[in-house]
Design a protein around this nucleic acid. Structure first.
Lengths: 263, 263
DNA sequence: TGCTGTGCTTCCACCTACCGGAAGGGGGGC
DNA sequence: GCCCCCCTTCCGGTAGGTGGAAGCACAGCA
């Protein structure tokens, strides 16, 4: 009776993870049926697993009955070391930069062929932009992206150049032009964009290096016009990037600590 | 041969979650053996499950061989609706507040009997404080905490009053004194602390209400002395809190986690 | 009031994907 | 070399997981 056609090759662990993966920025809240469908699980199976996840705190049920990512996942996410360490060091300098310029401040790392926005500051007066913390935007169309791309390994550049999708009419889609710009980024130490990602928004960005000189992140400013006083803004960015570099010291890569105690 | 004493009553799903739960702010990086021990799983079992979690991106292996929370968990955590919605609305106002005062800005919600710091801004010049985004601090010893406590339901106040742990010599531990302060918080519309959480640090805080007038969060400033120009600072806080309230849609905040939270 | 649709919850016999002790491998300290 | 610690792989037995189906709850509609 009880039909049982367990789909082979799919472990329980991966089912739990697939349920989590069903959520994304466009689907932050899902009813059970959609959750099951997006995770590729039968309704009854999803129901059972989801109940366990709610008990643990990974998911919560909103008043409307839909499921959402729970507070406990937020806690866990904050422990992710790549963004957490960088943010911790960078945050005060980003504040200073915002205070000095009142432009939107971006702090990003490269995640594959995309720029991952680790932090972002903007006041209530700032331009409305597509960037959000956690967003992934194209490397070739943003200030921080160009910096990261200019210092990315060859295979990554190759993949990005293979698909220069236009975002606005001003997005650079000619590989030769972009290649020239990246060479200038490496030579001059900063990148710029002019309405290549959002109409009406221009940006400047500089690399952030670790103690070994490796480019690990990029720091940028975005406003309706940044080119008039570009020299000053690049100077401010450079000062902040140096401060961040100094703060990173020798501990950015997992040190070995704790405890002979037990045993 | 193959000994098999599967521990009953523990589902695979909960094992996966327990592995995640083995990480906390004091153990953001764990080698396999510690991870297995903290999750209460045999080494071989942990090894198998962890491998799947790494494949999916929930965990990553650091260069030293230890496991850490992966970027994909960071992404997921950002989708948690309670902090995400509040932060999105509040962030620009927090920036403005920081720009106007240059004091450390705190934005917190109540999580059970603790204040959960949802956001925090401070420049490179600011005081070093114990607060961090994601931190949970006592309600009775912080500015934002007193605001949240003053507007908390009776059972919560009861539980907090039952255990007024001193943090510094100035922490309020007399229930009668605290009760008087909370009454004043409700009457005056703001709370203050004087070195009750960190020596040398004082704070002011005001409630943030939603469209229905319910207190959903608290907004605070901390500096070495805030009482001299308290009137101005409270005014700035109040303006920011009103701005946040206006930015909030109606059903913005999910019900609080008011369970005794095991662990 | 009854009908229909949608979505959630519970049930349970089958059986496979999971379990975990033990053995094997690798590297670093002494 | 020798030991210790930690990681990785293996494999027979079986218990936890599976998912179709039935039942329930509720809302919209005539």
């Amino acid at each position: 009776m009880a039909g049982n056609a367990r789909r082979p090759g799919v472990s329980v662990a991966s089912r739990v993870l697939d349920l989590l993966g069903a959520f994304d920025s466009e689907h932050p809240s899902l009813i059970l049926s959609d959750l099951a469908r997006r995770a590729g699980l039968p309704l009854a199976t999803a129901h059972r697993l989801v109940a366990e996840m709610v008990t643990w705190g990974a998911l919560v049920r909103s008043p409307s009955g839909a499921y959402e990512i729970g507070l406990r996942m937020w806690d866990l996410g904050l422990l992710a070391q790549v963004p957490a360490r960088l943010r911790q060091v960078a945050a005060p300098f980003l504040q200073d930069l915002y205070g000095a310029t009142l432009a939107t401040v971006h702090f990003a790392v490269r995640d594959g062929t995309l720029a991952l926005y680790v932090d972002r500051l903007s006041g209530s007066e700032s331009l409305q932009l597509v960037s959000r913390v956690g967003a992934r935007l194209p490397l070739h169309a943003t200030g921080v992206g160009k910096v990261l791309l200019a210092h990315a390994p060859e295979p990554i550049r190759h993949r990005v150049f293979a698909e220069l999708t236009p975002v606005t009419p001003y997005t650079i889609t000619d590989p030769a032009v972009l290649d020239g710009q990246l060479a200038r980024v490496r030579a001059d130490g900063y990148a710029e964009t002019r309405e290549e990602m959002s109409l009406g928004a221009c940006s400047l960005a500089v690399p952030v290096r670790d103690r070994e000189g490796e480019v690990v992140a990029a720091l940028g400013l975005t406003a309706s016009s940044v080119h008039r006083n570009a020299t000053q803004l690049v100077a401010a960015l450079t000062v902040a990037a140096s401060g961040i570099r100094r703060g990173m010291s020798h501990r950015m890569v997992a040190p070995w600590r704790d405890h002979p105690s037990a045993q």
